[in-house]
């Protein structure tokens, strides 16, 4: 069983890996933004089909960016799935460490 310290290290390491992938220009599917709950559900279905360890696949399908997006500057910080203190996306299909200034097309307020 992982201790609290080990969990924090894992979290930090994964966050760093994701940040590096985005920094290196990982191309993700930012469009189309799901306008309705049905379209949102179809993206979730794509995510569920991935291998649970396929972090890169999740980033690509969810359309992650390492900066705010759109005319309103949408970002994880205001997203309903974002846990501010854990710096964590709590959407079960993503379950990833994320930074508050990032964004993905599963953004929901």
């Amino acid at each position: 069983m992982a201790t609290g310290g080990a969990k924090r290290e894992d979290h930090a390491r994964l966050l760093q890996e994701i940040a590096q992938m985005l920094e290196d220009g990982l191309e993700t599917q930012t469009e189309p933004f799901p306008e309705t709950a049905q379209e949102f559900a179809r993206i979730l279905d794509e995510l569920r089909a991935l291998d649970p360890d396929d972090v890169k696949g999740r980033l690509v399908i969810a359309g992650f960016l390492n900066h705010p997006y759109g005319p309103d500057g949408q970002r994880c910080q205001e997203c309903i799935y974002y846990l501010v203190h854990r710096r964590w996306c709590d959407l079960p299909e993503l379950s990833l460490p994320v930074e508050p200034e990032w964004w993905c097309r599963l953004w929901k307020i």
């Binding site: 933004f33 709950a37 049905q38 949102f40 559900a41 949408q74 309903i80 307020i109």
Partner: peptide, 30 residues
Amino acid sequence: PGTVFKTQTVMGVPKDLPAGVDQAGYIKLT
């Protein structure tokens, strides 16, 4: 599919907001 037990949204914002709350106020409050 995607509508049952799922908050219905339009462009990421709930279609039905708490009674008496407008969209601009909701976004600011969030």
